[in-house]
Design a binder for these strands. Sequence first.
DNA 1: CATGCACCCATGTGATCACAAAATTCGCTC
DNA 2: GAGCGAATTTTGTGATCACATGGGTGCATG
Lengths: 190, 190
Amino acid sequence: MHGEIAPGQSLTLRGIGADFGVSMTPAREAIRRLSAEGALTMSSSGRVSTPELNNERIEELAALRSLLEVELASRALPRAHIALIDRLQSINARVAEDIARQDAVAYIRRNLEFHRTLYLRAQAPAMLAMAETVWLQLGPTMRALYGRLRRKDPPHFHRLIIAALKAGDEPSLRLAVRSDVTQGLRMLVG
Amino acid sequence: MHGEIAPGQSLTLRGIGADFGVSMTPAREAIRRLSAEGALTMSSSGRVSTPELNNERIEELAALRSLLEVELASRALPRAHIALIDRLQSINARVAEDIARQDAVAYIRRNLEFHRTLYLRAQAPAMLAMAETVWLQLGPTMRALYGRLRRKDPPHFHRLIIAALKAGDEPSLRLAVRSDVTQGLRMLVG
DNA sequence: CATGCACCCATGTGATCACAAAATTCGCTC
DNA sequence: GAGCGAATTTTGTGATCACATGGGTGCATG
């Protein structure tokens, strides 16, 4: 999910088991679970690797993020009190630090933490789980994107999200979330 | 997914293995996968059972169905030619038969086949997979619903969906799908 | 030097086992 | 007869093994 593994990297049961000091069995179960969520692809022979997404698939997953996360943000809005907004702002500050440090993995993790913190307030666990499944599928690809894109600016749309939350402005919030979610992936496709 | 198992039914690895004539290992992997998709719940001790959904969860899953399936139908619309509509109509006729026979499992299966046939045209595999995940989570509960509800009428909203497809009318299609998806679950909650 | 083939090693699958923990059942006591 | 505790059975977990298969490497041949 955090882009620590590059797209197309192949994984073996015995290798994962050795990495974590366990036998094949727990590694198998973990891989089975991740495959079920679409985070790993299994070849016909049962070999697993992180997916290499084509542009169509990336656009589809971006559309899914947009659908799910706009709804989650919308549901979180009425419950978003000042304490939550403060936390979002502090997370956002750390996002800026990660960008300054050019640490792609930390940036992705913190960015997702920003989103998850907001969506937790939606009180919609199934919906949040689906959003996280999409994140999982995009993880390796996002790393490839943000590793390439060497930007310095702190995330613009995060500020818009926070502003819309403060104002209690649902249409603006929906637009800001959609923009934030789509923006990064749009340039990966382009 | 088809409601063959009642909500809250507990399953054991050895039992499933025996049912399918295999050892625990394949049963374990299947259960792990289904748990990852939310189709089964695991207790802290690792025991698995089909979920018993409360009203909040049902409403959330209905909202997810609405979000995903409206989008899928909308994407399928431009590609929906007459051959597809014919197939939908013939599936719909068999849905009516299943209702007449009071066969809940067959009805659920056929109803989902109707939806899947339409959504396949959307060419959005990740989105369809998420919709099917929601179906999986609702399976046992849907059975409990349709087993209770002893209705005789063929599905009204399916006709509206077909009519909207024929007319190429996207707003009507979106409304019809949302209604069809929400209708059944609304009375389960109520 | 390229290409095809054969061999070998790596890898996933299903089965079985030992073990620990939890649930159920049985019996005892009040 | 009801409640509680101990014993037994059930059940999930992790490990290990045999086996089949697919991939990769290296060698031989044109």
